[in-house]
Design a protein around this nucleic acid. Sequence first.
DNA 1: GAGCAAGTAGAACAATCATTCTACACGACG
DNA 2: CGTCGTGTAGAATGATTGTTCTACTTGCTC
Lengths: 175, 175
Amino acid sequence: MTDTMTRIAAGLEQAFAARGFAEPSVEDLRDAAGVSLRTLYKYVPSRADMVLAALEHRHTRYLTHLFDGLPDAPAATLDALLDRVGAWMATETSHGCLFHSAVAAEPGSARLREVLGRHKAEVARRAAAATGLEGHEIELSVIMEGLTQAWSLHRDAAIASAKRLGHGLLSGEAA
Amino acid sequence: MTDTMTRIAAGLEQAFAARGFAEPSVEDLRDAAGVSLRTLYKYVPSRADMVLAALEHRHTRYLTHLFDGLPDAPAATLDALLDRVGAWMATETSHGCLFHSAVAAEPGSARLREVLGRHKAEVARRAAAATGLEGHEIELSVIMEGLTQAWSLHRDAAIASAKRLGHGLLSGEAA
DNA sequence: GAGCAAGTAGAACAATCATTCTACACGACG
DNA sequence: CGTCGTGTAGAATGATTGTTCTACTTGCTC
């Protein structure tokens, strides 16, 4: 059933998020997934695929975390969005973006790079649509990426700084 | 001699930058360093120390690349700084910040986290001093981190966006 | 109740890898 | 000349790991 696959993906995501992509052995991943080695390999036929499955799962979780039930007013929306990025960092990842980490761990993998690109593009597109900043996807990307990286060092101060940069974007919008 | 140590550190930096922190074996690192295994272990007694040596070397190289001979006028300085970040990405790293990658590869290492923190703090401090934006270190961090991450996907467009965000900071400075 | 899909537990295999060790080369210097 | 510091080349070791395989258990369905 898909149920088993989801449980596996969720466990893999958590394991990679907590311990990085290099350290956990397949036996560790099996424990995290809560299934036997046989079943794990049946659903996910290699360790590289385990990484992809984890990222797939995280992608959908991240999207719902960021965009479900956002407010309507542009300024409030932007603030809420950046707060949610910070909240995600606080609860889900102590350090950086999991997609970038995956690519960094295996810079040669074209599949990983493609997953990263799709993930980032979709986040930026949705963020622009939600804040009425269509055409400024890349500025939004820079702000959100910057917040994600800087959060681990500066916590709430990083969120406040990202908000200030974002407001500059909104008010510069008259032009 | 320190000469040998520098040669080793430079080789290690290049190897890790090109192939990530997980993939290269110690024998690969030996080839990159251009010394024998014995000598490598004499100067750098474990693989974890090889990572640290590489980061140490990159730190000083990055600082000189960013800050040597910067112009004086605040706006020109900021642009030049962000251009240099982009140039660094183009020539030195196809993907992301090497320090973040190192931490991501081994999230448990306190030594790595400390090196990351010191690196980022020094870069932000110098950037603020060079652009006359003292007190805005964190905004600068967000912009530079964001550019570093977004560059791999958007290239020159990421640089232009980072500049726009930075100019917003400079003109908002009247307040 | 026979058979089948889907699961668990864990041993076995082949390969890789970090680290150490042995044996040798060479230039400087007293 | 001898020896000491610093280097090279590469084999041996010991442990870990990704992957596969064997043997057994459940629950469902005809």
